[in-house]
Design a protein around this nucleic acid. Structure first.
Lengths: 335, 335
DNA sequence: GGGAGTTGAGCAAACGTTTGCGCAAATGCG
DNA sequence: CGCATTTGCGCAAACGTTTGCTCAACTCCC
């Protein structure tokens, strides 16, 4: 309360060296002798010194902050992504600044945040980057990595191989004898949903069994639920024997609707999703799905980001990771 | 890319005034004439000027950052809280720095983050504030508001009235004729869970119908599920006719387990929860619960925080908000 | 018309760190 | 032993804003 928080010069005086030496010693500069470095570390520790990030940012231009943009709370996938990002960013000695979370587009005020706080890099999921925000980042040398979204001009990206995952699911359905296939997709302009939709449709088409029914699940549980009700209400001969919902939350909606209507999931009808959220393992869902490698996606995303923090000149790069097929009861292949 | 980002002096030169005038004009200082202010605003706009937060923080000691600590991803309530916090903090012209998200205690490195980034205030949910972190905040004049957790030494708090909500639920159960009551609680050291547990138990005891069964749901869906299975497995005469799970996620587990076991929820057994998460409205759950006023909680929390950013001397304060009882089918009172 | 008060804006010193450069002392080599 | 090199550290100038003073120019009132 009373005593001022120590600064680098407080430490310098206590250790009997110059402030610049403190600065260098604390970040492991080779030019400082091991003894001096050890002494400085000890003094700093005793004084409870911790640097002012604002001063560092002002002086060096690096803030130690990573910005993040995530989609709406209605899809737990984004929460999953955020939590993992917090963890890994912390491990790398950086901090997470939330630029935007929720539905709605990226506004100008968010580009401001990137500049004002001199964010070192930015992880964006959830939206297709509006061009002006992208331009702002590019103009100011803020590296951007799209996560689970395709790369745009001047950005890197880390994606899950949506087409491959969809093929895995389609193949599984075909192998277990399913032929009348419904697709619960979404009209939302998300590249992820489009890729899953297209990847699946193409595969099924070339296999001779194109989806016979396409419903819009609006990327929500409720949308999936309505789709499920619609499917359940179809007379038996017309009803599909399998459903691919392009995200787990929609698949949950489908499952709940089917079960509520008394349709035996896994036997009468197979349901598969995509995302691999932990909730999908619950006995009530027991959902066959493709797991997005969230840990690896964030990890590689931060790799890309950090590489570009050090060297702004690096060319854009897109990393595609394959998800893992998790086969559970909802696809009925266990029986 | 090529041109340097404008600073306050760039704007000052362009507008033909001193840098200090720019600074004052932009934050609405009365001493600057309306004409000058308008001109400065226009010039700043044209140049695309936006201040460097680090310089402001360094000079003024205020960073414009609010830190947040939230609990594990397994409970969507925290995600709900986070999203609302992002929204409201943005509206107030501040930004959100995530200090910690997830299970696990608050480590020293998190106290460092508070200091390094000169966080203006901190919202903490999820954990009981470890004393050393609290001491660090107090010593450095960082106001802290606990959200959905009781106040500790040197902190403010915003809580939902857990006891009152529990009484509302208990009363509802009694009024609909339930007498054999099970409580799915948690042994976790969360003040929230304790208050709900105690509030409910006291009320039921004084009403002459103390909970006949107490199970530990470990604050998770899985824990609730196990509790539900246990209940469903009881022979009919011993089986309770109602269950209060002290959080919605546990209630979901209970519901799913009961339904999977063929127990008719709402008729054979009533289930009520606490939190009022949006998912509880889904037809499969249709859960009677008490809604935590998340919007108001964050709002009042930020009010407390901002008041203390302006005047560090303000005494601690605890605000208790009553939740809204949402009666749905799971409590069977509709029938 | 002269003094007191008000209004509007500038000066310059912080704020704490980083970093290019400089300069001794220690070391290497011939 | 003398000279060139390396090693280890200090100096001081940034970085961009804020803010306590200072100060000139008006306005007002008697």
């Amino acid at each position: 309360m009373s005593e001022k928080r120590p600064t680098i010069v407080t430490v310098a005086e206590a250790a009997g060296v110059a402030a610049s030496t403190i600065s260098r010693a604390l970040k492991g500069d080779k030019r400082i002798s091991p003894e001096t470095r050890a002494r400085i570390a000890r003094v700093a520790q005793e004084l409870g010194y911790t640097p002012y990030a604002s001063a560092r940012a002002l002086s060096s231009g690096r803030s130690g902050l990573v910005g993040i943009v995530i989609g709406p709370a209605t899809n737990p996938f984004y929460a999953e992504l955020l939590y993992e990002a917090v963890r890994q960013i912390g491990e790398r000695g950086l901090r997470l600044l939330v630029i935007h979370a929720g539905p709605g587009p990226l506004e100008n005020s968010m580009a401001d945040a990137l500049l004002q706080y001199q964010v070192d890099g930015c992880l964006i999921s959830s939206v297709d980057l509006p061009s002006h925000v992208g331009a702002v980042c590019a103009a100011n040398g803020v590296p951007v990595v799209m996560v689970n979204r395709v790369a745009q001009a001047d950005t890197c990206a880390v994606v899950c191989d949506n087409a491959f995952g969809s093929v895995q699911l389609g193949d599984l359905l075909l192998r277990s004898g399913r032929r009348r296939i419904a697709l619960v997709r979404t009209s939302a302009a998300s590249s992820t949903a489009r890729e899953r939709d297209a990847g699946f449709t193409n595969f099924m088409q070339s296999a001779g069994h194109p989806p016979s029914l396409r419903l819009d699940g609006r990327s929500t549980y409720e949308g999936g639920f309505e789709a499920g009700r619609h499917i359940a209400a179809l007379p038996a001969p017309e009803r599909p024997d399998s459903v691919y919902a392009v995200s787990d939350i929609m698949a949950w909606g489908v499952l709940d609707a089917l079960r509520l209507a008394g349709v035996a999931v896994g036997r009468d009808i197979a349901v598969v999703g995509f995302d691999g959220l932990p909730q999908s393992a619950r006995p009530v869902y027991d959902l066959t799905t493709v797991e997005q490698p969230v840990v690896a996606m964030i990890g590689r995303g931060l790799d890309l980001l950090q590489a570009r923090m050090r060297d702004k000149g690096l060319p854009d790069e897109t990393i595609s990771l394959r998800g893992r097929l998790i086969e559970r009861g909802s696809s009925g292949s266990r029986a």
